[in-house]
């Protein structure tokens, strides 16, 4: 009974994938698990994975809440690019790092408000509503940077993406947000209300839930997360590249959420799952690089792992939740199997 329960846990396969990847790495490079303390800072492959994965994790946290409300935000990559563009352009024109950050995050909140407006007020399907900004957003970022790659040299700004407080600051920020969101949503009733809106928006509205406000808020929060992630990315390289900063990061974030067991159909979500999902994706990327496969061909491995994890989760999902989508008088797959 015990092992079966373990197998049925929604994080079993993602964690198994993560462990497998770590083992692979350790076998090919015995010093993989080593962590050194040097000048009060931690170094090592594991720390690198965390640091490189910090922006994805942060965006995935915002994405988790959006997906829990039955939405999706495709624009986060473009928003991240805009954040970097705004901040770097401001610094390059002589502004201070602090105001640059505030300006960039302010812009991202506005963009989040815009997405939220389209979805919650106009009632447009989230996938198209955010596709608008995904398409136009990079153009807007180019507009800000006038098509140039803006480089900056501001030590304070550089701290966001590359600074250390024992651990990289970016990692601390991302984990801090993750824990903060977990405490906030599970400690209060916010999580339950978000899930309720995701499962049945109309019923929630009639039960007195402020569905519109909740949906609007999660898009703003996703925008904010994307903004901070964009700052991390641009500050790490001291530059704003409107075309390539945060390219495909929305897809990585969505994958992280889905691998973590949160369904794209909305409803119940798992922040712990999102953390594991983000780690799986980043570890995979790192692994492929360190094995020496061409960076672009690494995509093949990503595809394989994603499909493998989703497939492994799937039969079980359809056993446990199978009745939901097949509410009609058709037997769920499990019934067919057992009846046969």
């Amino acid at each position: 009974m015990r092992p079966r329960q373990l197998l049925r846990h929604h994080l079993f396969w993602p964690i198994a994938a993560l462990v497998l990847l770590l083992v692979l790495n350790t076998v090919s490079n015995p010093s993989f698990l080593e962590i050194r303390l040097q000048n009060g800072q931690l170094y090592g492959s594991l720390v690198d994975i965390l640091r490189n994965g910090a922006p994805t994790l942060l965006i995935a946290v915002g994405m988790t809440l959006v997906i829990a409300t039955r939405g999706i935000d495709l624009s986060v990559g473009a928003v991240a690019a805009i954040a970097g563009a705004v901040a770097c352009t401001w610094i390059a024109s002589g502004g201070s790092a602090a105001t640059a950050v505030l300006l960039a995050l302010g812009a991202c909140v506005l963009l989040g408000l815009w997405n939220g407006f389209l979805v919650s007020v106009l009632g447009i399907q989230p996938i198209i509503a955010t596709l608008v900004l995904m398409t136009a957003g990079r153009g807007a970022a180019m507009l800000v940077t006038e098509g140039q790659i803006i480089t900056v040299d501001d030590p304070l700004y550089h701290q966001i993406g590359a600074g250390f407080l024992v651990l990289p600051i970016a990692v601390l920020v991302s984990l801090g947000v993750l824990v903060g969101v977990a405490l906030l949503t599970r400690g209060t009733a916010l999580g339950m209300l978000v899930e309720s809106v995701g499962v049945n928006p109309r019923a929630s509205l009639l039960a007195g839930v402020r569905s519109r406000t909740i949906i609007w808020t999660v898009y703003v929060f996703a925008g904010l997360c994307a903004g901070v992630a964009g700052l991390m990315i641009s500050s790490n390289v001291n530059a704003a590249d409107a075309n390539n900063a945060g390219l495909w990061i929305e897809m990585d974030a969505i994958l992280a959420v889905v691998i973590g067991g949160t369904s794209l159909a909305g409803g119940r979500y798992s922040l712990a799952g999102t953390l594991v999902g983000a780690l799986v994706i980043q570890t995979l990327t790192t692994t492929v690089y360190s094995i020496g496969v061409a960076p672009n061909a690494a995509l093949v491995f990503k595809a394989v792992v994603v499909i493998a994890v989703c497939l492994l989760q799937s039969p079980r999902t359809s056993q446990v939740f199978g009745v939901r989508r097949k509410a009609g008088p058709r037997p769920s797959r499990s019934e067919e199997v057992t009846a046969a």
């Binding site: 209060t188 009733a189 916010l190 339950m192 209300l193 899930e195 309720s196 499962v199 049945n200 109309r202 019923a203 929630s204 009639l206 039960a207 007195g208 839930v209 402020r210 909740i214 409803g267 119940r268 939740f321 939901r324």
Partner: peptide
Amino acid sequence: AEGLVADLSVRDNLLLALQAARGW
């Protein structure tokens, strides 16, 4: 369509209106 929050527990469904009135 307008009543049940089918994927949530009986407990959550029972408390939904009360909780919504109190705010998150």
